[in-house]
């Protein structure tokens, strides 16, 4: 497990080692730590815009003694998923590195514009996704821990549900997945099983959007992609 101080130390070290400026986005538990929503996280999740940036960080981390985790491990953590990250680990510290896609979610321009904060560690700049976008990225993973995290985010931040709805529609346009359908399932589960505060009006709206999308898809008789 990594806490915020250990995360800061690692980023600071990376920033000192990098010869040129490089930036990336942080999601997951790492981002939640910046918001004070979590005390520690199992792994640091970073999203890069360019493969060459990810390659640079992989090199830096390998020089610091990080090793790539095997494909078997990746498939356990992210079962049957495309766009899985490169996973590196050293002792207790794990770093997951994505490029543009986080499993079935695309790092969209609107997400980039909504960033809440920027932390500069020398040549390494970390941009923290907004709470709404953290929820969007969590709905695609099917991991129990991510459900608990999503509930915590809803408790600790004032969520703009319109942002989540619009983003899910956009994600459906740029990925092969019927995002609102899966978002509805996700939020419905959170409300029913974990008593999350998801407004009924929001669930109803997402359900309506999902049904319309499903209907269109079925009329087109195209295969429906699951996560």
């Amino acid at each position: 497990m990594i806490n915020i101080e250990q995360q800061n130390e690692l980023f600071k070290l990376i920033g000192e080692i990098l010869k040129d400026k490089l930036e990336c986005y942080v999601i997951g538990g790492s981002a939640m730590m910046y918001y004070g929503m979590k005390g520690n996280t199992k792994d640091i999740d970073l999203v890069f815009e360019h493969e060459k940036d990810r390659e640079k960080i992989i090199q830096v981390l390998k020089n610091l003694g990080y090793n790539e985790r095997g494909i078997k491990v990746v498939s356990i953590i992210y079962p049957k998923k495309k766009n899985t990250p490169i996973l590196l680990e050293r002792d207790d510290s794990r770093v997951d590195l994505f490029v543009n896609k986080i499993i079935s979610t695309v790092l969209s321009n609107s997400m980039k514009n909504r960033i809440n904060s920027i932390y500069e560690y020398g040549n390494f700049t970390i941009k923290v996704l907004a709470p709404e976008d953290l929820i969007i990225t969590k709905c695609a993973t099917e991991r129990a821990g991510d459900r608990l995290d999503a509930v915590e985010i809803m408790k600790r931040a004032k969520i703009d549900w319109e942002v989540i709805i619009k983003e899910s529609i956009f994600q459906a346009e740029v990925t092969p997945y019927l995002f609102p359908v899966f978002l509805f399932d996700f939020l419905y589960e959170l409300k029913e099983d974990l008593k999350a505060e998801v407004p009924k009006k929001v669930l109803d709206e997402i359900r309506k959007i999902s049904e319309d999308m499903l209907e269109k898809k079925l009329k087109g008789k195209k295969k429906i992609k699951t996560f």
Binding site: I4, Y34, Y35, N116, S117, Y119, P131
Partner: peptide, 12 residues
Amino acid sequence: SITRMQKIGNPG
């Protein structure tokens, strides 16, 4: 604010 950003580092 109900969301508490960590005040890490120095002013930007």
